[in-house]
Amino acid sequence: MLEIKNLQASIENNKILNGINLSIKAGEVHAIMGPNGSGKSTLASVLAGRTEYEITGGSVTFNGKDLFDLEIEERAREGLFLAFQYPQEIPGVNNVYLLKAAVNAVRKHRGQDEFDAYDFLSLVKEKVKFMEMDEKFLHRGVNEGFSGGEKKRNEILQMLMLEPQLAVLDETDSGLDIDALKVVSKGVNAMRSEERGILMVTHYQRLLDYIKPDFVHVLVNGKIVKSGDHTLALELEAKGYDWLLDAEAA
């Protein structure tokens, strides 16, 4: 469903992505690992449509459509979801209000009726419970004063409600204690299905203990330097990234 070919992107004339090739099919879970600053968040942002980045080469198709022809919100409505590394706070906007607007925008795009208030609320409450969150989070401002872990749970809650085709998770494990990591992983695993693709970006392999990927890729200096199955993650855990950095430099 997602075809990335020789993707190159830069910001302020700094080349960050240097020709990425990646193909994700429905039903697959991919993990992208790499040292800090290697371009993982850049890749996620470029896929979601952040305009600060200049696409300098390559192509991306999503369900057969040229991704770069679509506006940010159109990509989202087509089913591309990004769980942010640093979710934004939007003071005064009810969390549940944003969620409802988002779900209805996606449903409208799919030709479905908007949820009525009652159905929507009972569904949200079910998901909130599943994510082991307090219902009061629904009525607080979006991420307003949430702890790091609460923000990440909230991202996964949104994903569960939006049921995307392709979920891109950027460092969803960072800043989580072990209990929160388990809950977040439970949320992601609940989303695994034959129709859905998942791209996890992570710095550490511990997330992969809970969500077992089908493929692991190593990103170094904006390029995928190695791909493999989940055992590659274990190897990285043992050896670190340095041997790959050397290989890339050579």
């Binding site: 990509r75 925008a105 939006l162």
Partner: peptide
């Protein structure tokens, strides 16, 4: 009204105009 907030809302499928209204209304809530 930050680009990051707008990007966040739009990534959730909300149009830019609706996102601006949402953020401004949130600001005025009290």
């Amino acid at each position: 009204v930050s680009d990051d907030q707008l990007f966040y809302c739009r990534q959730r499928g909300i149009s830019e105009e609706d996102a601006v209204n949402m953020i401004v209304n949130g600001f005025c809530k009290s």
